[in-house]
Amino acid sequence: MASAVALLGASLLMVLLWMVFFWVPTEAVQGVIQRIFYVHVPAAWVSFMAFGIVALCGVMYLWLKDDRFDRLAVSAAEGGMVFTTIVLLTGPLWGKIAWGTYWTWEPRLTLTLLLWFIYLGYFMVRNATENPERGKRFAAVVGIVGALDIPLIHVSVLWFRSLHPQPVVLNAEGPALDADMGITIGMGVLAFTVFFFGVMMLRYQLECARARAELLEAR
């Protein structure tokens, strides 16, 4: 099941690549560099969703003490790290052409980097304690607190004087982009989401196998 979903996600990613390279029109002002948008925005969406799942599973783990929530949380957190890294690497490549610099300490970029470090801390905290149950509890708390950064990242371009572009899809007046570009970004969000869930399920299987191995070792 997990492999089938991951494979479906990979197929959708192929369709996305075809659309980006051969189908979608070139943006009039920014030129070809604007096409980075079709992976940068879906990656940001998936990373927010992944860390949202981490926070939700963290709450459930602290409440019910069910290890399945912890396994799901760590699987989602790893995916979140992968997709946040994509966001943090593709954004500066666009920024170098659009702004003339790879990096600037403006609110959205800084808060996104902070998010990456918070969830790096999530993995460090998990492995920092001698008692694994304690590590899981600490990690759940970090996962919940870290997710508070997500709404801040979203509103940072509205609240602060920011260099980062304003939202073009999720804004009050509705999506402000060409229909073909809207279809392509929609395809990007769908492909990245399906791929994330497929691979997250594979990662969950790995956590289950590890838990079983630890149980057999303890016997």
Binding site: V32, R35, V39, H40, V82, I86, L89, W94, V199, R203
Partner: peptide, 24 residues
Amino acid sequence: RPYWHFFAAYAIVVVMLAGWIVSI
């Protein structure tokens, strides 16, 4: 130059996603 940055961005995406699957 924009083409170089554009292809680099997509190469990063492919390498990161493939790397994640291979690592798992």
